[in-house]
Design a protein around this nucleic acid. Structure first.
Ligand SMILES: [Zn+2]
Ligand SMILES: [Zn+2]
Ligand SMILES: [Zn+2]
Ligand SMILES: [Zn+2]
Lengths: 148, 148
DNA sequence: TAAAAAATGATATAATTTATCTTCACGGTT
DNA sequence: AACCGTGAAGATAAATTATATCATTTTTTA
């Protein structure tokens, strides 16, 4: 899916939900979509300031907060960075990421077994899960072969 | 296991490894052991300053870094806090946590299935995992029953 | 159109973490 | 015991990440 399609899809989803996909939010969405890896809020801010020189930290954090709430982007807690969601039309899915510590590439996976394994452990303790953070760090296939 | 036993165990492990369980590190270890929940670095710093008024942020972060490297404590990435490991003698285990967003209680679980599920997904992508972050947020059994 | 709600702008500040350089303490060696 | 190298801790500063607050503008609703 190219960026224009992603934008169109996001607009559609927002319309359905009565959420406002404003120009600013679209700009941040697009900037993030141009990366295929994790990006820090301040890196994104620098990019945004090229378009909108008045942008401040709060500007980017507010936009990211909205995009995150809508499920369009995910925050990667272990590296304080953000990444586009692979499949944001399927709302509220558990977020499971493979993060390359060498090149920064992020792969979003979907393992029902993984989700079930967590939930079954939680059930056993009477714990009710609201949100999961699953972030595996290591090296992607490309970076491993590069080392040869 | 009470705190003194934990300290004794940590000393033993360090001795085996040739790592230095210094007075400062023991103090921070003990402070953390007194909590059964997640604690922020600055909260811990405040507690340390009662004993050692010259303690600074770097003091606590260095101690935590050491304790983390030794596997005695875990950093909770999603809330910037630290927690004692349940079973630090079994070194290098994958860290899997249930975190109560109400009372801050942290339960460390050990699910082989969970670990396998992540690894099998990684294998399928040729991704080599070095470190996992698994943090499930929600409400513990106690906090759920308190709401009745 | 008027009022209410939501988003953005502007400014400041808080919270978290790391860097750097110096000094000190410990272990092994001569 | 004196010397030396390494790692730990002290001191200071700064970088990075994130939020609070209040004014202004835009959008929605009535
Ligand atoms: Zn996703
Ligand atoms: Zn890579
Ligand atoms: Zn553990
Ligand atoms: Zn609780």
């Amino acid at each position: 899916m190219d960026i224009e399609q992603q934008v169109a899809q996001a607009k559609l989803v927002c319309e359905k939900r009565g959420a406002r996909f404003t120009a600013l939010r679209e700009q941040v969405f697009t900037l993030l979509a141009k990366h295929n890896s994790a990006v820090g809020a301040y890196d994104l801010l620098s990019e945004l300031q090229v378009i909108d020189s008045s942008a401040k930290p709060a500007t980017i954090y507010r936009a990211l907060d909205f995009l995150n709430q809508q499920g369009f982007v995910h925050k990667i807690e272990s590296i304080n960075a953000f990444v586009m969601c692979d499949h944001f039309s399927e709302c509220n899915h558990p977020v499971q990421l493979l993060i390359c510590d060498d090149c920064g590439y992020v792969e979003e996976i979907q393992s029902e077994n993984l989700d079930l394994a967590i939930r079954s452990m939680a059930d056993a303790s009477g714990f009710k899960i609201k949100h999961q953070v699953v972030e595996a760090h290591g090296y992607c296939a490309k970076c491993q072969s590069d080392k040869n």
